[in-house]
């Protein structure tokens, strides 16, 4: 997993609530056995018409946002299925930070496993960021995870907070499994006790 320290890039506005994982990446793209290559299918139904041509009205098809690195969205982003293909497709497109008033739990977790920073902020601050993101190529934000700050194009700074352990893992690009395996003796002790007490497990 790549480290996440400071990210500077264009922020794309997606002012919709309840953006679900089927919208982020529809099921026909879940048949892959790889993690990569999903970026071109991100938001497939909204991004392309029935003939497969780009829908010019969709935000990520507009010249200013084609290389967006940040997404500002409405409440309950990522609701629905557990598919990690959703963050994989966002990452593969080049977006590494999603800002919204709230996220669905599983999607939120999945982001951290892939070096994507999901930022939860109050509705009124999201509204302000959404408005700034609507400024096309001028909507360049800097997200600084070390300082937990977003620097907006007009010079204003917005503070955010992240869970301490998750921030540590993102800042250092740490692999969860490696960290857990350090605790192997504790797992062994737990298993032995459970086995004695509840042999049916």
């Amino acid at each position: 997993m790549d480290k996440f320290e400071v990210l500077t890039g264009v922020a794309a506005p997606l002012p919709m609530i309840n953006v679900d994982t089927d919208m982020i990446i529809p099921k026909q793209f879940l048949k892959t056995i790889k993690r990569t290559g999903l970026g071109k299918s991100l938001f497939f139904e909204m991004r392309y018409d029935d003939a497969g041509n780009e829908n010019p009205a969709f935000v990520l098809n507009k010249p200013a946002y084609r290389n967006a690195k940040i997404l500002v969205a409405g409440a309950n982003f990522g609701c629905g299925s557990s598919r990690e293909h959703a963050p994989w497709s966002i990452l593969d497109f080049g977006i590494r930070c999603v800002i919204a008033p709230s996220f669905a739990d599983i999607f939120y977790n999945n982001c951290f496993k892939n070096g994507i920073l999901p930022i939860r902020l109050p509705q009124e601050i999201c509204d302000k960021l959404m408005k700034a993101a609507e400024n096309g190529a001028n909507a360049t934000f800097t997200v600084d995870l070390r300082a937990e700050e977003i620097h907006m194009p007009d010079g204003e700074t917005v503070k955010f907070s992240t869970d301490e352990f998750r921030r540590h893992c993102l800042l250092n690009g740490l692999d969860d499994i490696g960290l857990t395996l350090v605790k192997k003796p504790k797992i062994d002790t737990y298993e032995a006790a459970r086995k004695a007490d509840q042999p049916w497990v």
Partner: peptide
């Protein structure tokens, strides 16, 4: 009982545990 992403599937396969709040 709850749903998890693929990274967590790998974590459970490897360790039979999950990091959770």
């Amino acid at each position: 009982a709850f749903g998890i992403g693929t990274s967590e599937v790998e974590h459970v396969l490897a360790t039979q545990t999950l990091v959770q709040a």
